[in-house]
């Protein structure tokens, strides 16, 4: 007979670990959003500079989308971990 409680605990640990990785990734993306924002202050003028700024702004927006997705993923994995372990919330 499998020990369902032990299996559930293992599953919860795995989901928590996944959630942690997703949060770590989201934090890294957040850091890179800030890096891109700082680059908007680069002392560069002219047509190519305008293109560069536009690219950075698009990159910031895109990275924020990725960050949101990762945060949602982390939340969902965490929620499922609590469900598996029987925790109520």
């Amino acid at each position: 007979m499998p020990d369902l409680a032990a299996l559930a605990a293992l599953a919860a640990d795995a989901l928590d670990a996944l959630s942690g990785r997703a949060r770590t990734a989201a934090a890294e993306v957040s850091t890179q959003v800030e890096v891109h924002r700082q680059l908007l202050g680069t002392d560069w003028h002219g047509p190519a500079a305008g293109a560069f700024t536009s690219a950075l702004e698009q990159r910031c927006s895109r990275l924020q989308d990725v960050q949101r997705h990762l945060t949602d993923l982390a939340d969902e994995a965490s929620r499922r971990a609590r469900l598996v372990s029987g925790a109520s919330w």
Partner: peptide, 28 residues
């Protein structure tokens, strides 16, 4: 540096995918 950091984050998260192996039926 940003490109490398994002690549590392992707690799780390991808490894986490294996954590889901065998969880069908347990995780909701």
């Amino acid at each position: 540096t940003s490109a490398a950091a994002l690549c590392d984050a992707a690799a780390d998260l991808d490894l986490g995918r294996s954590l889901l192996d065998g969880l069908a039926g347990l995780a909701d």
